[in-house]
Design a protein around this nucleic acid. Sequence first.
DNA 1: CTGAAAGCGCTTACAG
DNA 2: CTGAAAGCGCTTACAG
Lengths: 349, 349
Amino acid sequence: MSGSRSERKAVTVTDIARGSGVSRATVSLVLRGSPLVHADTRAKVEAELKRQGYVYNRSAANLRRRTSSSVALVINDLSNPFFAEFAAGVDDVVMAEGYVTLLGNTGESPEREQAVLASLMEHQPAGVILSPAEHSDGERLERVLGTQAPVLVFNRELPGAHWDFLALDNRRGARLATEHLLELGHRRIAFFGGHADSSSCRERRQGYTDALAAAGIAPSPEGLIETAPTRLDAATHSDALFADAAVPPTAAVCYNDTVALGLMLGLTAHGRRPGHDFALTGFDDIPEAALAVPALTTVAVDPRERGRQAARLLLQRIRQREQPAQQTVAPVQLLVRASSCPPPDRDGA
Amino acid sequence: MSGSRSERKAVTVTDIARGSGVSRATVSLVLRGSPLVHADTRAKVEAELKRQGYVYNRSAANLRRRTSSSVALVINDLSNPFFAEFAAGVDDVVMAEGYVTLLGNTGESPEREQAVLASLMEHQPAGVILSPAEHSDGERLERVLGTQAPVLVFNRELPGAHWDFLALDNRRGARLATEHLLELGHRRIAFFGGHADSSSCRERRQGYTDALAAAGIAPSPEGLIETAPTRLDAATHSDALFADAAVPPTAAVCYNDTVALGLMLGLTAHGRRPGHDFALTGFDDIPEAALAVPALTTVAVDPRERGRQAARLLLQRIRQREQPAQQTVAPVQLLVRASSCPPPDRDGA
DNA sequence: CTGAAAGCGCTTACAG
DNA sequence: CTGAAAGCGCTTACAG
């Protein structure tokens, strides 16, 4: 449990009322900037406020008014720069709108997620932004989240949940990347990395398949290579691309930037030069993408702006309830850089 | 401002009392796990709690008990992985101890810092963990922070402040790195990167100078090269190391990993091979350090563990006030990897 | 072991 | 324009 007692008693509206010779009600009106109070009275009270170093107790006000001035933000992995940026974006607008962010990090554990949410809900947030852990249980989430506060889910769809959802346009992003490689002349293009059981991976693979199909190319099963979404695992699996020596791919659409950077390392270690002998694209536009050598062609999703967008959507929902839940798709943008080169010989065969 | 009204009225202890035929006091005792209530009564009440989907209103309890169950965490740059890890560590133990984290990100702006703290303090945190923005004004911080909640400052010392302070052992870390290069046989070692007006840079330079002095080497002014603490700026300034062609250094202690990775890029672009022709070390052990080619020798500071440590120190201070403020120095550890090679020829001259 | 009453710091009709 | 009174959801002596 928790609970810490503070010793020096805080100064309250009662102290200010006494000190400036008015009633507590008048002090309250001054605090809330009401036009009802006389300028002289206001000045007197404000001087006393400053003199005693008054600090507003917003929790007490929230209790009385039956309002809330906090937003709960529950993140699956704060140590991932993508989600850290997202959190920064959320905090930006939450703070700007006069709310405060209650943070919870779940570290991809559904159990921690449950515990964190239970704890946060006791603080009566006005709304919840949830970037779910992998394998979250939608049923249990509904139970712990209740119906008091509106919820916005980010990034990972929750099966069966009826909350607002902000999604990245994974399918479109992967399609753009694949089309770009096709335009450069590539014909044998792999999809590299990620776990097929993650919805974002499935969606990106779908976009990749869409683009190939539109170009009249049948994707080969060997062209789909699974890895953990980490640099190390991607580096380790890079040779899987060339397992079938007869028709090796000349390019790869990678699940994300981390995987793409790992693949670059793996290629280099095997004497291949990414951006010269082999073309590849990433997804996310993490800061390192632009600084890699060669710089990584990727799909930008602007996580900080996604955070701002999520917070705006939630605050809007807080203000007007009872709308049907919405699915919002965030824009993506292809950034062409040096890692996506043309194929070695023009026919790519 | 803020404030959002919730429509469906929440279920309260009164509802539970009515529903289970006991008084509100008894419900409260059940909620707080008191041994005073009879097992049958407890069971009856708990069933009703579950039936009505009661959620505890901790704000109301805190108001009545004059306690707090939140900790304010104010971070200078959440998009920096180092601080994101730190935040994750703080949240870990804060949550485990039954508190909740109130997050504020200042983006290195002292003005935002001031506003963020003012807003957070209105929510009556039990304590504050502050990683100050550059050029924070200690006086103004004292005013907005007040004396109600204990404060722990992380990473950047605040001139004149009398709060607890958790510091990285910058001086020792840089000394270890420099000694390591000396042992490899280097004699002309530069200190590369960082701004001399930042206290962490000054401390690291001091450790570097200490080690050189102990080896009987006078550091040359040309061996101190300033850059912004970014990869790009470091890459751009890499040729400054070789400006004095007569006695170029054979190694560099870098301000941090980001700068070291930038320097590697710059060296490579100029035909030098880090880890073969030139030795270098970083500071921080960010995730990329181990994955760089060559892997980067660096000083590990374990930001997540620092976050846990900061939270533990603060909670301890919350429990017992009126101790004199303490300065705690976090351990550092040298991790030797491939980037620190011996000098090209053994005398290094 | 249980209940009636007071109170945490604030706000809000309601009188004046 | 200002004040007295009630109440937000909880807890805590104090009786019984």
